[in-house]
Amino acid sequence: MAEGSGAGAPLEGDRPLRRDAALNREKILRAAREVFGQYGLGVTLDDVARHAGVGVGTVYRRFPDKETLVRALFEQDLGIRQKSAERALAHPDPWQGFVDFLMEMGADLAENRGLHEVMMFGSHSSEPIETARGGMLPFLEALIRRAQESGDLRAEITPSDIPVVVQMLSAASQFTQGRRSDIWRRYVEILLNGMRQRPDNLPLTTPSLGDEMVEQVMGLVRPAAAEE
């Protein structure tokens, strides 16, 4: 058996990648995550190759176009987000689980410009990516419902509020132009204080955008329901 062809090895078509090819692929993905995170999705595959320290031909052999590379990165990030949501749902304290998830998602999107563009506005989108993004909504709905049922989260908060909150946090991070990229953490604390249920809460007078409008803005496609 060729080295690197064991279970779990990256595939090229139906064939496992050789060890050196698999290592190059991971090097390219790490480099892409860094340059996309810092500069957004406007960078080229040539930029990624330079950052990875490999020839541009190596990048094109693994990823024939930027869409393929973005999709591979997003699939990794989606897995991370889903695991984060699962941990949050398993937390014995529904409020802390909700806070932990929001903080982790806020960190990723406020500090990773490329991921923010894919997640929030469908940049370099495709049907698989849109469907995957829509697949996060049930996790978010469950986290909100659980925190509301425990009496910790205001009843007016809806899943459609969270993308707007995350967009606000990202804007706060970008406002400092790199000098205080962590400033979003201050504002998430302020927002969480306003989102927590308290006896003296004044009612919110402006309705949320609603799921339909948020999905239109984000270009979301919910996964098709499984047939009975």
Rank of each mutant, 00 (worst) to 15 (best):
R62Q: 15
F63S: 02
F63D: 04
P64D: 10
P64V: 00
D65A: 09
D65W: 02
K66D: 06
K66N: 06
K66E: 09
K66V: 08
E67R: 15
E67T: 10
T68G: 09
L69P: 01
L69V: 03
L69S: 04
V70K: 05
V70N: 04
V70H: 09
V70D: 02
R71T: 01
A72L: 07
A72T: 13
F74G: 00
E75L: 15
Q76G: 10
Q76M: 12
D77H: 09
D77M: 12
G79S: 13
I80F: 14
I80L: 14
I80S: 11
R81P: 00
Q82S: 08
K83D: 08
S84K: 06
S84I: 11
S84E: 11
E86I: 13
E86K: 13
A88H: 04
A88I: 12
A88L: 10
L89S: 06
L89G: 01
L89Q: 05
A90Q: 12
H91I: 11
H91L: 11
P92D: 15
P92S: 09
P92Q: 08
D93T: 00
P94V: 11
P94A: 09
P94G: 07
P94Y: 05
P94M: 09
Q96N: 10
Q96L: 13
G97R: 00
F98N: 04
F98S: 04
F98G: 04
F98Q: 05
V99P: 01
V99M: 05
L102K: 05
M103D: 12
M103K: 13
M103H: 12
M103C: 10
E104T: 14
M105E: 02
L109S: 04
L109T: 08
A110P: 02
A110S: 15
N112A: 10
N112T: 12
R113M: 08
R113Y: 03
G114I: 12
G114V: 12
G114A: 07
L115N: 04
L115S: 07
L115D: 01
H116S: 13
H116P: 00
H116K: 12
E117H: 07
V118G: 01
V118R: 04
M119Q: 11
M119N: 05
G122N: 09
G122P: 01
H124T: 06
H124G: 03
H124S: 11
S125G: 14
S126C: 10
S126W: 03
E127G: 01
P128S: 11
E130N: 05
E130H: 08
T131K: 10
T131L: 08
A132S: 11
A132V: 04
A132Y: 07
A132F: 09
R133M: 04
G134L: 12
G134C: 12
G134E: 13
G135H: 12
G135V: 13
L137A: 03
L137W: 15
L137N: 06
P138W: 15
F139C: 01
E141R: 15
A142S: 13
L143M: 14
I144H: 02
I144V: 15
I144T: 07
R145F: 00
R145Y: 00
R146F: 03
A147N: 02
Q148A: 07
D152Q: 14
